[in-house]
Nucleic acid binder design. Structure first.
Lengths: 146, 146
DNA sequence: CGGTCATAGTTAGGTAGCCTAACATTCAGG
DNA sequence: CCTGAATGTTAGGCTACCTAACTATGACCG
């Protein structure tokens, strides 16, 4: 504790974390296959599942700019999965809302993804799964810090 | 244990994991800023750091196709960070090798990234860091399964 | 009120990274 | 040799992101 042993440990953990983060991106992409909804599309739908929300909120949640969000949302609209309507309380804003078709598509895609991920998790033993489960909220916490 | 309570637990964990995975992608992207090396570029350099390797190996490690790897490698070459030379033992193959400049750039970028991630990790307490450290190899294991 | 500034989205145009298909070159086996 | 497999590169296209410029609405204030 003379100098900063904690600092070195932190750097070492950061190194490992960075590597794993990269592999996680890889893993995530490998889940995206087929003609299914993309991860980003599913996130958008899941946000709108609770209540209609603004384009700017979608952008913020996805970590992209508003024009990019508009683009994606228009595609979802053309696919009939969401509808766009002016916000009655502020006609500048646009509310993105899930259609019935959108909800069905999201639920089904979500289920299928979960099954695919669950199949991976089956290769872990109980302890490993417990550790993983404990780590997830911690990673979430890191995100908020950003 | 009558039906498959484990199955339901697995699905629930899968759901959480999927969400965190998405946020991890977000986190990872948020690290990519500036005019620095991208994550993919750093991975490529780190692979070549040990010994020269083939384009096809780079592609496989990054999870992309060979033409895409060629593209990235050519950019790195133009930046003077790697060199491309025919494999003496098989002149179809091309060996990608780190230049001195490439090694220096990689080491510096790596250090800076680690510092940035370490800054995030500082917001965690010791227990949380321990849990995170324990979870990393488990996530790696999932990747191999893919 | 009426003018000015901020806010919400869309449009336009450009870039980066990925893909498949088609192509050269080289190796390996009968 | 000659044919088929393996290794890269080239060509062309797609998607998701970006910034800049624009429209339209709201909000504040003299």
């Amino acid at each position: 504790m003379t100098d900063s042993p904690t600092g070195r440990q932190l750097l070492a953990l950061a190194q490992s974390f960075r590597t794993t983060l990269r592999h996680a991106v890889y893993l995530s992409r490998s889940m995206d296959g087929d003609g299914e909804l993309t991860t980003m599309q599913m996130s958008t739908l899941s946000m709108a599942a609770d209540e209609p929300l603004r384009v700017s909120r979608v952008a913020a949640n996805l970590g992209i700019r508003v024009p990019s969000a508009t683009e994606q949302i228009i595609k979802l609209e053309q696919a009939g999965l969401v509808s766009r309507q002016p916000d009655p309380t502020d006609s500048r804003a646009v509310l993105v809302q899930l259609t019935d078709k959108g909800r069905a598509a999201w639920e089904e895609a979500s289920l299928r993804r979960n099954e695919r991920v669950a199949a991976l998790l089956e290769h872990l033993d109980d302890d490993e799964r417990a550790t993983l489960a404990a780590a997830l909220p911690i990673i979430e916490k890191l995100n908020l810090t950003t």
